[in-house]
Amino acid sequence: MTAMTAPDKRDNAPILSVRDLKVHFPIPGKGPFAKDRPLKAVDGVNFDLFPGETLGVVGESGCGKSTLGRAILQLIAPSGGQVAWLGKDIVGIPHRDMQPLRRDLQIIFQDPLASLNPRMTIGEIIAEPLVTHKPELGKDEIKTRVKRMMARVGLLPQMINRYPHEFSGGQCQRIGIARAMILEPKLIVCDEPVSALDVSIQAQIVNLLQELQREFDLSLIFISHDLSIVRHICHRIMVLYLGNVMELADRDSIYAAPRHPYTKALISAVPIPDPEIERNKERIVLTGDLPSPLSPPSGCVFRTRCPFAQEKCATDVPTIDRVSETQEVACHFHDSI
């Protein structure tokens, strides 16, 4: 079996370039005259995404991965930085200029049933983006396209008049994918698309996303806390911690030789379904929980849980260093640990 090859980047300009992206939510201070405090959900994220590529965004809950996905799509207004879509910055552009771009930028959510309007038939749900973005299309044409897309994602076209509650979780996720795909977008942000599904169904949905990616040359941003699935579907992986990038590397480098202590800990914590391997593997067990993003640690945000933290980590913020062609890491001591 051949390994999935990453799209060749040299021939292509990035489809999406994110520079120093910040999302700070103001949290009201306690007391009538206290100032608002910023909650830095995303704090200076940089990356490029190429056509046909899947970028995995991983990290614990509260690390800012969903906020990042929404800020890229301008569903949450970024507090600073740039999001360049096909070379043009889209942060803060007027609604009427953003609207046509939404054809190319779609999203799939975690909870498949909650993200579908229970009072609309699945035909209406899948057709809605077409009705909004291509009002010139006739009813018959819309119906034809909806049925074609339903068949493509593995739903029986004759179910077009059914309601979401009549479908299982896996089928609802297929409906969500059909809705996102109907405009043939260039980028889909997948926010934990398989986390709510049973193991036997997860693989079906992952395979479907990979087929669609190949067929339509889609770029995917795959937000997940499941590092096993991410290893399977993503070409490159970004590890976030408290809104900061800890490591960004292509898949083979990050799983074979993770450089950041947080990445190492995350990977070693994932249970492996093999009793011999699971019981004998070495693990880095982190102590404690994610600190509050309202008062992040000074210096390196990860230092309070890092088994290798030294004095310098409390005072200096590590820069992102390029350690190889395909791997960047934000740690003062990535060479020595």
Partner: peptide, 9 residues
């Protein structure tokens, strides 16, 4: 059908 973190895909 379990994806595995210890195997290349």
């Amino acid at each position: 059908s379990m994806p595995r973190i210890d195997r290349a895909n």
